[in-house]
Amino acid sequence: MMCPLSTNDLHRIFENLDKNGDGQVSLDELNWLLERIGVQFSLHELESLVGKPSLDINEFLFFYKSISMQQGDASGENEGGDIREDVGVDGQEDEDEKDLAKAFGVFDLNGDGFISSEELESVLRRLGVLEENSSRDCRTMIRVFDTNLDGLLDFQEFKTMMFQNTIS
Rank of each mutant, 00 (worst) to 15 (best):
M2C: 02
D86C: 01
D28A: 05
Q70N: 08
L46A: 02
L34R: 06
L10R: 14
R136N: 07
E79M: 05
I57L: 15
Q70R: 15
V123Q: 03
S48N: 12
V89L: 08
N16S: 13
V39R: 15
E59I: 06
L130K: 02
V39A: 10
N110F: 05
L124K: 09
Q92H: 15
D146L: 03
F107M: 13
Q92F: 12
E29Y: 00
Y64C: 11
G76N: 08
S54R: 05
D146K: 02
I167C: 04
K65I: 08
R84K: 05
E157C: 08
K65Q: 14
R126S: 04
F62S: 13
E157K: 05
G72A: 02
L124S: 06
S135Y: 00
Q40H: 13
G81Q: 11
C3E: 06
S26F: 05
F104P: 03
N8M: 09
G91I: 09
R84N: 12
N165R: 02
L17S: 10
C138Y: 03
D86Q: 05
H11R: 15
R136D: 10
M2R: 06
G38A: 08
I142H: 00
D99N: 14
N8G: 12
L153M: 11
V87G: 00
R36Q: 15
N16V: 04
C138L: 03
E119N: 09
E95L: 14
E93K: 10
N110L: 07
V39C: 12
Q70W: 07
L120H: 01
D112A: 01
N133L: 04
M69F: 03
L149E: 11
Q92W: 15
L153V: 06
E131H: 01
E45P: 10
F63R: 03
R139C: 05
L109G: 02
T166K: 02
T166M: 03
G128F: 04
S122I: 01
N148M: 09
L100P: 05
S6H: 08
V50T: 06
D73Y: 04
E45R: 09
L55T: 00
D137I: 03
G21Y: 05
L30R: 11
D28F: 02
F104Q: 04
G111C: 08
G88A: 11
E29W: 00
F62R: 15
K19G: 00
R12T: 10
Q24G: 01
F41C: 14
E118Q: 07
